[in-house]
Computed example of a mutant assay.
Amino acid sequence: MRAGTSSIEAPDLWAVLGLEPGADAGSLKRAFRQQARRWHPDLNGNDPVAEERFKAVNAAYAVLSDPARRAAWEQGLAGPEGAAAGLDPFATGFPAFEDYLDELFGRRRRSQRPTDGGWAGSDGPDAEEPDVAGQGYGESAAAQARTRPAAEASSGGPVTASAPAPPPVVAATDQETLVELSPEQALAGERVELELADGTAIEVWTPPLAGDGWRLRLAGVAPGGGDHFLQLRVRTPDGLRIDGLRVLYQLELAPADGALGCLAVVPTLQGPVQLRVPPGSSSGRLLRLRGRGLERGSERGDQLVEIRLVVPAELSEVEEALYGRLQQLAAEQQA
């Protein structure tokens, strides 16, 4: 990968990280981790703009996480490029993403010394050499393959450079998490925290008046730039499903009850009630219980009861004879 100088595509550093101005340190770090993973060149081998976007994210975090540089930028004493001057650590290649985060957030204390340039750590007797293939802050394998042959040629040695390995390409895969909410949480909106498979922490608020079966899309947070979906489940133990202010319930009846009509006990959020099912009710018919839904201010929803006729899996001899007779009558009427 060709390295160049840093550039910030947007003048608003907060916007580069997808944050509102003045976000706290924890939000800043989470946003940086998310955007850095999304645009790291090793994870976007087929995206020609990923390198510049990754540099912009790195430079924005370097300015906003440093009180002095951030103050200079906010007061207009330095533009984004000036505030981020000297903050391009990628002049000789890109480190592996996890090593980059380990070093930046202080999770790894290992000293590292580059072979042919790049970022150097301690030069003391305990300093370790960087791993092969660009691990740590030494040059990447591709950068070493470019620089070493030139050095050997100047000394008269043979040039035997091998072709650099192509960068890994991570396929974009969508992921999904089931989130269970109570009717009250779905009505007002709920704060949800989850940790993705790669360790990324996500915090999101569900929208007010959410319903059972809703899917919320978190764009670009899954590995390879895929989307992560939140599948909402808003149900009560007795089978009520919430959809905004409305409550939905499926009532199972025997075919005879649907044909002749009956009284059925139906659960509601306020307790069970008796519902009169009119004769000739087929599967799919909706009956309304007014005012039995959720309440928000002066608004109150209804409860819809869907009729579902269910035939027994096993019939007694008497039932089988009766169904047979009904079948004969239906055939005679159609003749």
Rank of each mutant, 00 (worst) to 15 (best):
R70D: 03
V63H: 08
D99M: 04
A68G: 14
D66M: 04
R69L: 09
G45A: 14
P48Q: 03
D42F: 01
A96G: 07
F94L: 02
E98L: 09
V49W: 02
G79W: 06
L77C: 11
W73G: 09
E51T: 04
F97M: 13
D66R: 09
G45K: 14
L101H: 08
P41E: 00
L101T: 15
D47T: 08
E74N: 08
Q75V: 15
A96W: 03
R110S: 07
A56R: 04
P89E: 03
R110P: 01
A50L: 05
E51V: 07
W73S: 09
K55S: 04
A71D: 10
A84V: 13
D88H: 03
N58H: 11
A68D: 12
Y100M: 12
L104V: 15
F90V: 00
P80Q: 10
T92G: 02
A59H: 09
A59K: 15
R109G: 10
F97T: 06
P95V: 06
P67M: 06
R108P: 00
R108C: 07
F105C: 06
P89C: 06
V63Y: 07
R70S: 10
G79R: 05
R69F: 01
P67T: 04
R107V: 13
A96M: 04
N58M: 08
P95D: 03
G86M: 07
V63I: 14
D88A: 02
W39E: 01
L77D: 13
P41C: 00
D102Q: 13
S65K: 06
A68M: 09
E98G: 12
N58K: 11
G86A: 12
E74Y: 14
G45Y: 05
A85V: 13
L77M: 15
R53S: 03
G79C: 05
E51D: 05
E81W: 02
S65H: 05
G106P: 07
Y100S: 13
V63D: 11
D42Q: 04
G82S: 14
P67E: 03
E98S: 12
A72V: 11
L77W: 07
D66V: 07
L43S: 13
R53G: 01
A72C: 08
N46A: 15
K55R: 06
A71W: 05
G86C: 07
E103C: 10
R109I: 07
P48Y: 01
R69N: 08
A72F: 08
F54E: 01
D99L: 00
R108Y: 03
A85E: 15
A85I: 12
G82R: 12
L43H: 09
N46L: 13
A71Y: 06
F105A: 09
G82Q: 14
R108Q: 07
W39H: 02
A96V: 11
Y61D: 11
R110T: 12
F54P: 03
L77I: 10
L87P: 09
A83N: 13
R107W: 06
D99T: 14
R110E: 08
S65E: 12
F94M: 01
G79F: 03
D88Q: 05
T92K: 02
R110M: 09
Y61E: 08
D99I: 08
V63G: 11
L87G: 11
H40Q: 02
E81S: 11
E98I: 13
A83G: 10
L101Y: 07
A91G: 10
R109W: 04
N46Y: 12
R53A: 08
A59M: 11
